[in-house]
Each structure stands twice: as structure tokens, then as C-alpha cells.
């Protein structure tokens, strides 16, 4: 069953259009929503979390749309942004009080466990929290509710490797019962790449591809070679060709029947390399 179902959402701004985006995430899986800065990642996520309204299209979480029950819909989502959304002048204790009033499924004792585990101070104002502490506070507040979908908008930006690893584990624990899903957006894949089951790639408000990560990784080969290796037939098959004085680098579809000549170096590309060359190809 699909936990998140996004159908045909659109949104127009002066210089940007989110153009009929559709995708779904089955329950128990993680999707990485990726693209360059300004590609439309945050717009999509904000529509799902209902921070903004779509001009058209529908979103449902666990079978429930916003129109059916706005409070229950919001309670199913845990959202973590790239900066803290809590008022800077408040203390953690005050925030806990607000969460209790705002979300029906908030469990104060679970929140206390996370607060203790991460040594978050009770009486300090949020503005005195470090970036890592703010992220931990956001995680503590969403994980102490009975949510079905975690939405992370560039949430690991600027965090140290230990904290990023901790987040990976948290996300995998979150989906481990197979009933909940994660949607995260990022422009730097790095470690999040490892745990993503699906990749949605958006550019200039349009979907470029949506596939399982493993399928995507197996669809392409990274090819490198010297200037003399770049024959016309090969050039024709290459995707996102990048040439420098001493050679070239590009992708080759693994279904392509062209046989790379002996001097060529072929390797398994990373998701980042696949995206980079796809963007180059689209610019041609």
C-alpha cells in the first residue's frame, strides 16, 4: 500500500512553475527527493506538509487527504526543515507545552526520553541552541508523536558526520516496522544516498525520473577515456559528455549495445555522478 500519494500537483510563481508532479512512496520505504537549488524540492515538500497550497492536484497520507480531516492529516506528518521553526525566545519546556496542545498524538514521556538521551537543556532559550541541538529538538518533537510520514527538507545540512550517522539510524528505525515512510530532500546526497530506496529527480519544476535507487545505479556506467577514445559512434551514445584537455567523462546506458573500446575506464557511477551528467545532457 502507498503511504504517500502525490497526484498531479502544480504551483505557479512569477519565475517558477511546479509542473504536474506525481509520485508515491509505499509504506516502509525511504525516498530521496533531489535536484539542484531552486528545482522545486521545497515547494513540493511544502505542499505535502500543507505549509502552502497547491494550485491543483491532491496529496494523501495513509489514505487520508487534507480536506477529509486537516487535524488528523497534519498529525500524520513529522516535518524537519533546514532551520529550526521554533520561536527563538522560547525554552524547550515551553515548546513541549505547545506540542502537547497542538498534536493529539504527542506523548510527553517519549519526548522526555529523547531530551535525556540527547542532553537537551530544559530552560535554555532556543536561540542559544547549537545547530545540532536544534535538529535534535526537531527530531525529538516529531518522534514523540504517532506520525506516518517524516518529511525532511535539507535536514542534514551543516551537521557533523556523527550526527548525520545518528540521523540515518533514526530514519531506518522509523521505517523498520514497515508501516511508515520517509521523504527527504537534499542537493548533497552523500550518506543519505545509502539508505534511500527510491530516488525522485526534479529539475526546473519538472520530473526527470523516479525509480528505485538500485535500478538507477544499474542503468548507467561511468565511462572515462583519453581524447583519442572519443569516436563519433561512441560520442553519439554518451550521456552528459564532459570534455577536458586530457580526456572525457560521461555516462553510458547499460542497455546500450556499443562496446567500449579497450582504453576506456568504466566504473559504477554514484547517484551524484548520474545526476550531474543528466543535467549536462539536458543543457546541450
Amino acid at each position: 500500500m502507498n503511504l504517500l500519494e502525490v497526484k498531479d500537483i502544480t504551483k505557479q510563481y512569477k519565475n517558477f512553475t511546479l509542473d504536474h508532479i506525481s509520485f508515491s512512496i509505499p509504506a516502509g520505504y525511504i525516498m530521496g527527493y533531489i535536484g539542484q537549488n531552486g528545482a522545486g524540492k521545497t515547494t513540493t515538500l511544502n505542499i505535502i506538509t500543507q505549509l502552502i497550497h497547491a494550485a491543483s492536484g491532491t496529496v494523501s497520507i495513509d489514505g487520508l487527504s487534507l480536506d477529509e480531516d486537516p487535524i488528523a492529516y497534519r498529525d500524520k506528518i513529522g516535518y524537519i526543515g533546514d532551520s529550526s521553526y521554533y520561536p527563538e525566545e522560547l525554552t524547550l519546556r515551553q515548546i513541549k507545552g505547545i506540542l502537547k496542545d497542538f498534536y493529539p498524538s504527542f506523548q510527553p514521556e517519549v519526548f522526555d526520553q529523547y531530551q535525556k538521551k540527547w542532553n537537551l537543556p530544559d530552560q535554555k532559550k532556543i536561540k542559544e541552541f547549537s545547530r545540532g541541538m536544534k535538529v535534535k529538538l526537531m527530531f525529538a518533537s516529531v518522534l514523540s508523536r504517532d506520525t506516518r510520514l517524516l518529511v525532511l527538507d535539507e535536514a542534514t545540512n551543516g551537521l557533523d558526520p556523527v550526527m548525520r550517522k545518528e540521523i540515518l539510524t533514526l530514519l531506518q528505525e522509523y521505517i523498520s516496522d514497515g508501516k511508515r515512510s520517509v521523504l527527504f530532500s537534499t542537493h548533497i546526497l552523500e550518506d543519505l544516498e545509502q539508505i534511500a530506496d527510491y530516488i525522485f529527480f526534479i529539475e526546473k519544476g519538472k520530473k526527470v525520473l523516479c525509480d528505485s535507487k538500485d535500478e538507477l545505479l544499474e542503468s548507467y556506467l561511468l565511462v572515462k577515456g583519453g581524447p583519442e577514445d572519443l569516436t563519433e559512434p561512441l560520442k553519439h551514445s554518451l550521456i552528459g559528455l564532459e570534455v577536458n584537455s586530457f580526456g572525457f567523462e560521461a555516462l553510458l546506458s547499460s542497455r546500450d549495445t556499443i562496446v567500449p573500446s579497450k582504453g576506456l575506464l568504466t566504473a559504477r557511477p554514484s547517484i551524484d555522478q548520474i545526476l550531474l551528467h543528466m543535467i549536462l545532457e539536458r543543457k546541450r
Partner: peptide, 14 residues
Amino acid sequence: IRGLAKELSVSVIT
């Protein structure tokens, strides 16, 4: 499958 994915920090599909 889910336990192993978590331990190895890889995706469930993998």
C-alpha cells in the same frame, strides 16, 4: 530484511 538494512545502513530494497 529490514533488520539487516538497518544494521548495514543500506536501503531495504537492496
